[in-house]
Simulated assay, not measured.
Amino acid sequence: MKHSALDVSDLSIGYKSISICDNINFQLQKGELTAIVGINGIGKSTLLRTLGNFQPKISGSIKINSKDLEDYDPLTLASKISVVLTEPIASKNLTVQEIIALGRHPYTNWLGKLSSNDLLKITAAIEMLELTNLKHQKCHELSDGQLQRVLIARAFAQDTDMILLDEPTSHLDLYHKVQILKLLQSIAHHTQKTILFTSHEIEMAIQLCDKMVILDGAKNPFEQPCTLIKNKAFERLFPSDTVTFDSAMGAFRIQK
């Protein structure tokens, strides 16, 4: 029997006892790129933070490789899941290579000494994200797009089965949004990592993702993009007098 890399069942998320989204159910497999989409305030980032164990769930079940999330100790969980949040990095005075090396923290000894294997993982991440020419630059010298690639490289260097990213394309222009999402797709498909990210780029996600979770506060459908289109799931996202979804084109249209 094939086990899911991530299994979310009857999940309710929110803060303390106040739920902001209920009835969340989906299962992800290795090698899949999946987007979480929905309107502002519906709980996309809260869901991602809950899955990464940065805040507690209200109810329901989250299983990583068939084991409950809360049963993992922090160090073991850090070897299973890497997370890229929207918070700024602690020190932009570090070099690109130094930031990426931080991804090896779960595997180093108490002195933080890097082994030959750690160095190989760091080099592989730098090459995968095409950062070789930037590895000695300070992070404050980078563009937003370059810094985003550095943070993804840090997560890749952590060498986890799953990578969670909160709005990885925010503040980027169209070209760099596409570049980042195609890169994530390539990493998922070629390294068999499970990658889950939140996004407002719904049309790009439809074109590039294997699966999508639509947080709508009700059924929260989860499926392949083509199935979601067929089931008219995107047409219920926004008020129809403002924005409509063209299922033939897989795109939104502004009502004039």
Rank of each mutant, 00 (worst) to 15 (best):
M1A: 12
H3K: 13
A5H: 06
S17A: 13
I18F: 13
Q29F: 03
G31M: 03
V37D: 05
N40E: 00
L48K: 01
R49Q: 11
T50E: 02
S59M: 08
S61G: 07
I62K: 10
N65F: 15
S66V: 07
L69D: 06
Y72N: 09
Y72K: 13
K80D: 01
I81L: 11
S91R: 14
N93E: 15
L94N: 10
Q97H: 10
Q97P: 00
A101Q: 09
H105I: 15
H105D: 14
G112M: 01
K121V: 06
A124Q: 15
N133T: 14
L134S: 09
K135M: 13
E141K: 12
D144T: 12
R149N: 03
V150I: 03
L151R: 13
Q158P: 10
I163N: 00
L172S: 06
L181C: 02
S186E: 13
Q192E: 05
I206V: 12
L208C: 08
I214K: 10
L215D: 04
N220C: 14
N220M: 11
I229E: 03
K230D: 07
A233G: 07
R236A: 12
P239Q: 00
P239S: 05
T242M: 13
V243F: 13
F245R: 01
S247P: 08
M249C: 05
A251C: 15
A251V: 12
Q255M: 13
K256C: 06
